[in-house]
């Protein structure tokens, strides 16, 4: 394998780990509310700017930035669920599908978040977060791996593992899973389903916010960086959209594949690669590469 190819794949894995986290954030919301959160990208952006604010104007150590951002973006997600999702579902009659109104509301949220951030003075110019770790790249032969990239992958994988343990081993996590898999049964067994949905939106916000801190050093910060959601959507589709481990694999796949497509077919194809992948996957296998049979809601 040539050095160039190795570098391309390594960089793809690093960005892919971030796509995987955003995809996870989208998928857990989808599992609990059957709607796509198109504001996830903007929550990533807000997370990055919260981190920038604390780095620029306080002397908080880097590791402490993560919990601060996590709390902030959890609050955004949970508050949005209370303020928008609850009233929408309450006002819809049972046989109507709330999917489209919720999607529109997330578009509204994304405009609001962009609108707020844009008014803050230091968002007019591109900014960057400092790298997570500094130091010379690790060399394996001719191939070098950046410590910062390694840190992104390690932290994302740790986060993903943490969520996996949370969802499968803790009481709250299992209650969350139960209430999204079968709300009626969960309700009957005493789980407060409505509150569970709020927590899910909060956790989704948290995941996206942490992504912001992770990509901050790698991508420039602009109020429009939320556009990365399109790639994350592709990752989620490849993964089957309702399949958590699938979307993680999808994230890495798309990070690497996007770069490979650009390498083989020319850099102008990088932008369109995620969309082609979505179409190809859905046409050939409508439930995604790792999805089970399509889940049909009985009315």
């Amino acid at each position: 394998m040539s050095t160039t190819l190795a570098l391309i794949i390594i960089s793809g894995i690093a960005t892919g780990s971030v796509y995987a986290l955003i995809a996870l954030s989208i998928v857990i919301v989808y599992k609990s509310s059957e709607a796509v959160n198109f504001a996830a990208g903007e929550v990533v952006m807000v997370g990055a700017y919260i981190a920038l604010f604390f780095i620029v104007s306080t002397s908080v150590p880097y590791w402490l930035i993560f919990p601060i951002v996590a709390i902030g973006t959890f609050a955004i997600g949970a508050a949005f669920e209370r303020a928008a999702i609850v009233p929408i579902i309450r006002r819809m009659s049972a046989r109507e599908n709330p999917l489209i109104p919720i999607v529109i509301a997330t578009f509204g949220l994304s405009l609001m978040l962009k609108g707020i951030v844009r008014v803050i003075p230091y968002t007019e110019q591109v900014r960057s977060l400092p790298p997570l770790v500094r130091g010379a790249p690790i060399r394996i032969g001719d191939v070098m791996i950046l410590r910062a990239d390694l840190a992104i992958v390690v932290i994302s994988v740790l986060f993903i593992l943490g969520f996996w343990i949370f969802f499968t081993r803790t009481l709250l996590g299992r209650a969350l899973q139960a209430s999204s898999q079968n709300p009626l049964c969960a309700q009957l067994s005493g789980i407060p389903v409505a509150r569970m949905r709020m927590i899910v939106w909060g956790i989704a916000g948290l995941m996206a916010g942490v992504c912001g801190v992770l990509v901050g050093p790698k991508l420039g910060l602009t109020p429009d960086m939320g556009g990365v959601i399109m790639v994350a959507l592709a990752a989620a589709v490849i993964g089957g959209f309702s399949n958590l481990p699938g979307s993680i694999v999808g994230g890495f796949t798309i990070g690497v594949l996007q770069n490979l497509i650009g390498y083989w077919f020319g850099s102008e194809t990088i932008a369109v690669a995620p969309f082609i992948m979505i179409m190809v996957v859905l046409v050939l296998r409508p439930q995604g590469l790792f999805g089970g049979p399509v889940h049909v809601k009985k009315v």
Binding site: A83, I88, P101, A105, G108
Partner: peptide, 21 residues
């Protein structure tokens, strides 16, 4: 006028939550 994007988003969210139909 700089708040226009925000206000537009807010109007969108409010109108959907108050009148989902």
């Amino acid at each position: 006028i700089v708040w226009q994007e925000f206000v537009y988003g807010l109007i969108l969210v409010l109108s959907i939550t108050l009148m989902p139909q």
